[in-house]
Design a protein around this nucleic acid. Structure first.
Length: 563
RNA sequence: UGGGACGUCGCCAAGUUGGUUAAGGCACGGGGUUUUGAUCCCCGCAUUCGCAGGUUCGAGUCCUGCCGUCCCAGCCA
């Protein structure tokens, strides 16, 4: 097994319901669908839906369709269709059928005609404002449209004219005739077709009328013989309409809509509207910006499909709305990469040290394990020379007692090498730290008898002569507040964290690491998990930090600072 | 003030048709191992299920009434 995926899915109300239905023989196989609208990129919230929709049939038998809900050509584009397919595949799922609501436009049109013939739909040529006013309010019933009781023949004629293209946008709509006094506003004669002279990414200019979500979704489910149409809570109020249409139309099957709570994560936004704004207004560098919770962004950041799937399974599926800490997502990445990522050494902010008793001009190749707990991952040789770089953070001139790293006169182990002592701190005339002069204890070299001598700290390093210079990008939360989208007063972009990206230009990698390709991942020991970014070039590698390691010292240090 | 839904430990979340001591994960605290202050391993962590009543031998699970939160008045999905 290449990953450490959780063995069993936790139980949830949808799974329980399906198990019971299967036991009572209500249907022979489970058919679900993942129905994105191609008007933006998929994000981690979609991943929750994807994992649910694909894992259920996988467990109980059946299959999942990928269906593009492409009923609004004003916002939909082919590039989004392509990106969505790539993201679903990357997450590890394969759909049975690639479907499009637009494939059913002709059938849907016939269904509309059927409703008209049954006296259950009518054409209304009032404008949007008039229709809105007649809809009533949350506490007052609506009033009937003056066109509500047109004859079937007239409705047919008008609807055909809508399709013919002779009418401009907004000239009229087709409405289902249900009940203007219904307490559920969705039942107050909802609009089911509107005129849109707009080229569609799939059907081109074939149509100038498009079905609304309500009219297209359930019927598409029925056409595809979807048994369970899983969607988020905000559609709960639409279920009566969903059912009404299914019951009044000659559809080939009877799907059931079940709603679950959408995913919320703190310090980020998870709505396509807001993500689109961040991209369009240039607050981030495209849909795959590593700070974004988009699938493309998470992938570029260094997240693995396994970690995202595990996360989605771990958080569960319920009807209660919750906000998951971003750290939960990060921990899932760590858990996955901890067992799989080869270890390397890299120094983010270099501090030069000279090993005064190490022979000048010489290189010693030391053996280093690629994974401390997994010998199967093998070993590699790392070069040691007289001059090496260590992390600036690993040296303190005036260190607190709990600081286990290097300090004047103190000892520390160089990972995979030997123990050194800091003999001298060299500064320039301005008092800036220039380098450290240290002596090594050759007896403590890894593999030597003296190697078991204990010192408090072990730090990572790279040979100054061999290290490869690289750019390393560190990411922090995109927003400064836990719920950027929940602020009624301020626009969410005002809460953007301007320090969410930190670019390090002086990082040094253990030689060989620069050969890595996009898709590879490493643990840079003591620092975190890093992946090559596609912005990198052979002579200028670029790495993204996906996530840090759990850092107990940082936590302790913070506590000490706060007293 | 209409309709729909939700409310179990700091964060998630199990709790079959009411039946002894309210799963599990994360976080947190303590201890052990460790050449990553990482990982890993132990141990601890809700007399209580939004609140108040009621039914019952027995209720997180049933009833009643409150309280709180979210969604709905697009020719968006």
């Amino acid at each position: 097994m290449s990953s450490n995926e959780q063995p069993s899915a936790p139980t949830n109300f949808i799974r329980n319901r399906i198990r019971k239905e299967l036991e009572s023989g209500q249907y022979e196989q489970l058919v679900t669908r993942f129905p994105p609208e191609p008007n933006g990129y998929l994000h981690i919230g979609h991943a929750k839906s994807i994992v649910l929709n694909f894992s259920l049939p996988r467990e109980f038998g059946g299959y999942t369709n990928l269906r593009f809900d492409d009923t609004n050509p004003e916002k939909e584009e082919q590039r989004y269709i392509d990106a969505i397919k790539e993201d679903v595949r990357w997450l590890g799922y394969d759909w049975k059928n690639e479907c499009y609501a637009s494939n059913y436009f002709e059938t849907l049109y016939e269904y509309a005609l059927h409703l008209i013939d049954e006296g259950l739909a009518y054409v209304d040529e009032q404008d949007a404002d008039a229709i809105r006013e007649q809809r009533g309010t949350l506490t007052e019933p609506g009033t009937n449209s003056p066109h509500r009781d047109r004859s079937v023949a007239e409705n047919r004629l008008l609807f055909e004219r809508m399709r013919s293209g002779e009418l401009p946008d907004g000239a009229c709509v087709l409405r289902a005739k249900i009940d203007m006094a219904a307490p559920n506003i969705n039942l107050r004669d909802p609009v089911i077709y509107r005129i849109r002279h707009q080229e569609h990414p799939r059907t081109g200019t074939e149509w100038c009328i498009y079905p609304s979500y309500d009219f297209a979704h359930g019927q598409s489910d029925a056409i595809e013989h979807i048994t369970h149409s899983l969607c988020t809570l905000e559609f709960e109020d639409h279920r009566p309409l969903y059912d009404w249409l299914i019951e009044h139309l000659p559809v080939p099957s009877r799907p059931h809509q079940i709603e679950f709570a959408r995913l919320n994560i703190d310090f980020t936004v998870l709505s396509k509207r807001r993500l689109t704004r961040l991209v369009d207004e240039g607050h981030v560098d495209g849909w795959d910006d590593p700070r974004l919770p988009t699938i493309a962004g998470l992938r570029r950041r260094g997240f693995t499909p396994e970690s995202i799937r595990n996360f989605c399974t771990e958080i569960g599926v319920t009807k209660s709305e919750s906000i998951i800490p971003f750290g939960v997502l990060e921990r899932n990445l760590r858990d996955d990469l901890n067992v799989r990522a080869p270890r390397r050494m890299a120094v983010l902010k270099p501090l030069k040290i000279v090993l005064t008793n190490f022979p000048e001009g010489e290189t010693e190749w030391l053996e280093a394990a690629n994974h401390p707990q997994n010998p199967d991952m093998g070993t590699r040789k790392v070069p040691m020379t007289r001059e090496v770089f260590i992390e600036q953070d690993d040296f303190m001139e005036e260190a607190p007692k709990k600081f286990f790293r290097l300090k004047p006169g103190g000892e520390v182990r160089l990972r995979n090498a030997f123990i050194i002592r800091c003999d001298e701190v060299v500064k320039d005339s301005a008092g800036n730290l220039v380098e450290l002069r240290c002596s090594m204890d050759p007896e403590t070299r890894s593999g030597q008898p003296g190697a078991d001598r204990k010192v408090k700290g072990t730090i990572h390093w790279v040979s100054a002569e061999h290290a490869v210079k690289a750019e390393v990008r560190l990411y922090d939360r995109l927003f400064k507040v836990p719920h950027p989208g929940g602020d009624k007063e301020a626009d969410f972009v005002e809460h953007l964290n301007e320090q969410s990206l930190e670019v390090l230009n002086e990082a040094r990698l253990e030689p060989g690491t620069e050969q890595a390709a996009v898709g590879d991942f490493f643990q840079f020991e003591r620092l975190g998990y890093f992946v090559p970014d596609h912005d990198g070039t052979p002579d200028r590698p670029v790495f993204n930090r996906a996530v840090t390691l759990r850092d107990t010292w940082a936590k302790l240090e913070k506590q000490l600072r706060q007293g």
